[in-house]
């Protein structure tokens, strides 16, 4: 797989399709509910966990929502870089 095609990028993933044959589609957490657990998602990822498994509703949302995805990238970077609150910056 060479990553998402342009069409996938334009249309996002199918909200009505489930991952397995029997499973119901994962419910998209939405922006506000996603924000409430974004720190847990990021911590799990930084710890080498599987946040998409633990928080599937947020994983789905991050695939579809460019704004929350950008927040996620920012938090991942800052939590990794400045997570252990050292001495005050200059």
């Amino acid at each position: 797989m060479n990553g998402p095609t342009q069409l996938e990028r334009l249309l996002g993933d199918d909200p009505d399709r489930s991952d397995g044959d029997d499973a119901a589609p994962v419910v998209d957490a939405g922006c506000a509910a996603g924000f409430e657990v974004l720190h847990l998602y990021v911590e799990s990822e930084l710890a080498g966990g599987d946040p998409a498994e633990e928080l599937p509703g947020l994983a789905v949302h991050l695939r579809r929502c460019p704004a929350c995805h950008e927040d996620y990238l920012g938090l991942l970077e800052s939590a990794g870089r400045f997570g252990d609150a050292g001495p005050d910056p200059v």
């Binding site: 720190h39 990021v42 927040d71 800052s78 939590a79 609150a85």
Partner: peptide, 18 residues
């Protein structure tokens, strides 16, 4: 206390910057 306090708090920064 489910995550580091910094990660919890930095969310608000990221959201405000956006």
């Amino acid at each position: 206390g489910e995550s580091r306090f910094t990660t919890w708090a930095y969310r608000f920064v990221v959201l405000e910057v956006s």
